[in-house]
Design a protein around this nucleic acid. Structure first.
Lengths: 143, 143
DNA sequence: ATCCATGCAAAAGATTTGCATCTTT
DNA sequence: AAAGATGCAAATCTTTTGCATGGAT
């Protein structure tokens, strides 16, 4: 759990201005493994910052994404974006029914390397998103 | 390129009713490697079937998806769904700038197996979506 | 003082839903 | 005849844009 001043330094280090809103969003995201949507972030952060607007959350997450502080990804075929402060390559498990996202403790190096090899002729690689779609235990039990 | 009667048989075989609209959409999708969006399908099919509605395209694609005739996936962070009649596990390359989707001739077996192993405790696996995000040659040249 | 972030409202884009009417089976 | 598909319109949901104000550098 980073201190307020540490969080501010993270922002400064990426060339981002420091504002209370950004600090609050970064604090919520720091170490978070819930893969929240923009709406999730909004709901969580609004408790401390009632004046926060959803739009600011979107703008801030966009800035964070460009600064590589978070990764944005679409989970399954659902049309919501999720945000992940863990920018180390790792696969996700997405439940097809409830949309819940989990990290998978898998080794991505093989795929990562394979993809790099393949792309020598196909363009420049930015990242590999691996999304294992299935049905989570909760939803299996409920069926 | 399958004949009209073959296409009808494919539909019947999956328990789907045969209609001119479904035949047209299936025909367009058959062997298609363009990863079209619903809008793309609509535009293409409308030439022969001017009365076709976008809604029917959505409904039909949904039915096809449930019948495992196509896979639906979100490309990158764009909020559009793409449809792929190739339901054999294979990775996609998505251009971060223009959104263009290509198939990658990669071997997915390793990831596939890895994912299966991992999920023994985490739920039931349906499919693995591998999406290599990057910048395609076109967009690289343009920069 | 300048540049950028914020908040509000409206807009845009993709997909879904409700419903009446036709088609398949 | 019954069940399901189609087309149209309206609704929904997520995300983006425009613009005036306020805050950070």
């Amino acid at each position: 759990m980073a201190e307020r001043e540490e969080l501010a330094d993270i922002l400064r280090g990426r060339g981002l201005r420091v504002t209370p809103q950004r600090l609050a969003i970064l604090k919520y995201l720091d170490g978070n493994t819930d893969h929240p949507t923009a709406e999730d972030v909004y709901a969580a952060v609004k408790e401390q910052h009632p004046a926060m607007s959803l739009n600011t959350v979107y703008k801030t997450l966009e800035a964070f994404e460009e600064a590589d502080l978070v990764w944005r990804f679409g989970a399954g075929q659902k049309q919501k974006s999720h945000y992940d402060p863990n920018t180390t390559p790792h696969p996700h498990f997405v439940c097809d029914q409830c949309g819940h996202v989990d990290d998978l403790p898998a080794d991505c190096d093989t795929v990562q390397r394979e993809a790099e090899d393949l792309l020598q002729t196909d363009g420049e690689m930015l990242r590999v998103e691996i999304c294992v779609v299935g049905v989570c235990d909760n939803c299996t039990d409920r069926a």
